[in-house]
Nucleic acid binder design. Structure first.
Lengths: 199, 199, 199, 199
DNA sequence: AATGAATGAGACTTCATTCAT
DNA sequence: GATGAATGAAGTCTCATTCAT
């Protein structure tokens, strides 16, 4: 998905990577509203260069999201391999971290003005598949209640990212994560879906 | 903060209220990007009339948020009075519902492009005070762990709103709320901030 | 078609007319490639004002064409009423004159980058209907051969406009029109469509 | 004007010819608005190569027109040699055909955004000279009225090309050409330049 | 010589805000 | 007070032309 047709000239590849990196940082800082001209300026190239590599703003956005998802997937698989019981938690917290600085990824993930499954079906499948794997591993290890599925995890990620943007890392880690973790580790809810009233 | 100087002519007051209502609905439906002209059109007034009552788009936005907060505060107090143990949960879920249809309020609340405490200090204080009250009542009733404070609740609201935007009401209610509720009802975390359970 | 809903405020109507006039002249001089900004500048208004009245460049173009067609139709009907035998010729020569200064109308008429029947079906029908009337009148008067139809007349207009743009009015009038007129007044071609070889 | 300085390397000459051919076809199909990049792509060369041979888009355009004129001149001379009485008609109809598919040539010829005599004086002279020859031959053969000159023929070509672009070949041939031909073959107009009455 | 990447001016269009009516 | 027209600063994107590879 990254390389197509010819392998791109060295200088072009450098520029493309630079634009991608700068765009990633800029979107992360400022959200999707940043003008392309601003990204071009920060990258030290002309606006036309950005458009040569990414014919629309949307496509630049997609390229960034695809790139980030790829990295996230790899990292999550490694961590789950090292510790299956903790893999899902590590992933959740990593995604939250991403959300802190990466408004663009968060918006994409939460489907704000961006339909991930439609725009990047392959990346989305890969991502969802990875989540299924590490969720299953955690459930087998007994660290996560067994009645949750991938859609629930996605939902929680959206929530965690929003929380992380709202609040500093350290506070979230010490005060809110424990709540979420306790909820995730709790025994399964009763069949009717209501909380099991230990409360 | 709502009434200033002289008490608006009757028709002007009517217009103001109408604009506020329409703007609330429109922002909720379409997000903050809607042109003022569109709001004016829907309200059946000229753009100039909107600007007479709200000198900037930002100020219109603030007025809406203040208005919504006021309503939310009243409702939450009533519910907590009726059932102190459930008041906080009712409030949380109500806020999540708001987030579903009220993109504007959510963004304001989550601090996206809007600093609530700076823009509307009085409303913010009122809102925070109310949350302190109902949190304390719930903790006294034993339905919420005692190591949580208002900032934690705010954080959870931000997360719940994001989750609710991401996922339908019914699914959230049956699959994710139980997790959050289990986490909130869990025994206090150990002093070092980690979850005490299996961890 | 000209007036819709409300009758437009006096100043707005003035501006609209001014923009239409300036745009007409500018397109006529420079063709359809002129930037809207240039038209706005010449009209002494902001670009936004042009867009308020004509939401796209295309729509401005259409408005001009519709306006011109309307005038042409009226004039042609008057002339044909005054002298049925000469009405068609007067119309043809008038259209050629228009083509001289009105690149925009010519392009629209010749269908260059503009589908008249699709864009302005009513105006197109009116225009075609008028041509049918004056052609029939001329044929009854015996000044035009009877085997020609409206499509042929349209074709000749396109040709005459192109010729008029290429060559000065006086020369065209004295040197080329006589050729066309002689051809139009010639006896009908033989049934197989070939010239009747008086040549 | 075609060859300058040293005689181009073989591959360069091949590239030049290929670009010229492709550019001709592309302009003919799409009009003068086509980006140079598109022409380069279709020719299978880099944009830089186009610019090496033709320093501006304008100069590429001129080279094409010169090339086409050359071919038209040759063909017309051959046909006039074969049949002097029909040579002019064959030429006229051939030019009209060209106009159908060759928007670039037509625009150049009609002087739309292009001054042929100024840009390509030699080609223009050659072209005009050829027209004088075949017009004289037709007039001697008695197939064309004797009061027409080369400028009139040029004018008619412009008109015919416009008509041909507007209408299909077959219809033009059977319905409009006869009119033009009848006009061209008609007896001379009276001295004052007006059409000689009903004739 | 060829390539195709980079440039940057400029086109169309939107919209928050001001102001004449 | 209300109206809605006017403004003009952006924003996205295109493309003729230049230049490093």
């Amino acid at each position: 998905m990254t390389e197509k047709s010819r392998p791109l000239r060295a200088d072009a590849a450098r520029n493309r990577a630079r634009v991608l990196q700068v765009a990633y940082e800029t979107f992360a800082e400022e959200g999707a509203g940043v003008p392309i001209d601003e990204i071009a300026r920060r990258a030290g190239v002309g606006a036309g260069t950005v458009y040569r590599h990414f014919p629309t703003k949307e496509s630049l956005f997609q390229a960034i999201v695809a790139d980030r998802l790829q990295q996230v997937v790899e990292r999550a698989r490694e961590q789950a391999a090292a510790d299956p019981g903790e893999g899902l938690y590590a992933f959740l917290f990593h995604m939250a971290e991403q959300g802190a600085t990466d408004l663009g990824l968060t918006e994409a993930f939460a489907g704000i003005g961006f339909d991930l499954a439609a725009a990047l079906p392959d990346a989305e499948k890969e991502f969802t598949g990875m989540m299924a794997e590490i969720l299953t591993q955690a459930q087998r290890a007994g660290t996560v209640r067994s009645d949750l599925d991938v859609a629930d995890i996605k939902t929680l990620i959206v929530g965690l990212q929003a929380m992380r943007r709202f609040r500093g890392d350290s506070e979230l880690m010490h005060r809110v994560y424990p709540v979420i973790r306790a909820g995730l580790a709790a025994p399964d809810a009763s069949p009717d879906g209501a909380t099991d009233a230990s409360a």
